[in-house]
Amino acid sequence: MNEQRASLPGTIAAWVVAFLMVFPILWMAITAFKTESEAIAIPPLLLFRPVLSSFAAALAQSGYLHFALNSIIVSLGSTVLAILIAFPAAYAMAFQPGRHTQDLLVWMLSTKMLPPVGVLVPIYLIFRDTGLLDTVEGLVIVDTLMNLPIVVWMLFSFFRDIPRDILEAAHMDGVGPRKQMMHLLLPLASPGIASAALLAIILSWNEAFWSINLTAAHAGTLAAYIARYSAPEGLFWAKLSAASVLAVAPILLFGCLAQRRLVRGLTVGAVK
């Protein structure tokens, strides 16, 4: 049905809201292009000559690139692992459902409901005793397990939406399971796989609890790095902003790209 155009007050209200919500991000981005003295100027400067020196300073900071690399490795690594483990499980649940498939799925999702702090102590001790503390591998394991239920869920719901008839028709045409998977399932499910991967990357990149508590100088991610930025460097707003922009930008981009599909993943299907 054709939608009625919004009234002028409605339009203005929507834009005001949008602007207010994005303002802190915008202000951070603006500050990142200032010099330190411009950054703390009162009244705040809107007109200034943008400089890249803060970015240079942030990048030159000991370890910034190291932590950024850790973030990339951990989020990509855990995502690839989660999808590899989740794919066959989701396939089995969607195409060969048994009596307990649904219970199994609900149970898997319910593991997400465990507050991490409840198991902080044992995980910390296990990591300490197995030498996983402050290692990238350790964090990859945690993030994989953390995101596994959501990835299973998202893949399952995408597989379930693939019409069975297509696969049955292929079966009747003598297309074997392997070819079915290569030529039918993968192409049909690839948007689903992509959005599951995107969500897993976002969640892993922004995961702060475990990375702060299980890592230090060696395997820390950007979340842990910036969390420790508070003390002396916190006074250097331009550099803080520049480092933050670098840490936030890729995920912000991913998030905006994937926002449509994220709702189902984020709410594990409770909202369709």
Partner: peptide
């Protein structure tokens, strides 16, 4: 819409420090 949704994708320590 993107502007309103954006804060959700900000790294929590960044949000706090900003």
């Amino acid at each position: 819409r993107l502007m309103v949704i954006a804060p959700f994708f900000v790294l929590p320590p960044v949000a706090a420090l900003i």
